[in-house]
């Protein structure tokens, strides 16, 4: 249970809710930019709340820079306190897109619109993570190589590709979704993995002309490459 006397730090966009948040949580606790990552005392913080789709910080164009902020807080600041993820999107969509939300006790989801009180209540019902959970969250859901590995080994489409021998065209939609996500991660991966990853992505576009075993072999090689990159 978070320390109820601690501050709640907020990352939000400059919208109509911002002033309400500032009056509810304090001027110095609500940030519009990367100031959130600097000069704070972990001991005095009960937890965080971020707006998943934060337009001002969106230099990558993914539309969900708030989610990058969640990863940065875990990876760079080693934050163990809960982080409430606020979004107008459907929860199922967000969990699928951002597997870090698989841990609802540490990353509770709050569908907007919601009040500052909702943020506080949601945060107080969540829990801090221990060092082992933090390690796993960072390695699997924050580090780009770890995210790529987890996507390749755990996502629905890639798992189907590995375990089933059905006509690949019938699985096209789910595989395409996973490939799209993998493509988004490519630029953050080591050069060697990027090259193999691009090759795999282009192969997957020609599903109709490939037999299942050829794409499976390519996927297995890619998994090995990413796995080795994680070791480094």
């Amino acid at each position: 249970m978070p320390d109820s006397s601690g501050a709640i730090r907020i990352l939000w966009s400059n919208d109509s809710i911002l002033s309400h948040l500032r009056s509810a949580f304090g001027e110095g606790n609500v940030f519009e930019d990367s100031g959130l990552f600097f000069s704070f005392n972990k001991l005095a913080v009960a937890g965080f709340a971020v707006l998943a789709e934060h337009p001002l910080l969106d230099s990558t164009g993914t539309g969900f820079v708030g989610m990058d902020a969640v990863c940065r807080l875990r990876m760079e600041k080693r934050i163990v306190m809960p982080i409430v993820v606020c979004s107008f999107m459907q929860e199922e969509f967000m969990v699928k897109r951002f597997p870090i939300l698989m841990y609802p006790q540490h990353h509770p989801y709050l569908r907007l619109p919601a009040s500052p009180e909702d943020i506080k209540t949601t945060l107080m019902q969540s829990v801090e993570m221990d060092e082992f959970r933090l390690r796993e969250v960072i390695e699997k859901y924050c580090d780009p190589v770890g995210r790529a590995f987890h996507l390749l080994t755990h996502s629905h489409g890639f798992r189907m590709l590995q375990t089933q021998n059905e006509n690949l065209m019938e699985m096209r939609q789910v595989i395409d979704e996973d490939v799209k996500q993998f493509r988004n991660l490519l630029s953050a991966l080591p050069a060697k993995v990027q090259k193999a990853g691009q090759h795999f992505c282009s192969q997957s576009e020609d599903l109709g002309e490939l037999d299942a075993s050829e794409l499976k072999t390519s996927l297995t090689k890619l998994i090995d490459l990413v796995s080795n990159a994680r070791k480094g």
Partner: peptide
Amino acid sequence: AALREANY
């Protein structure tokens, strides 16, 4: 990769 899981 399995050995890496031992980290947790």
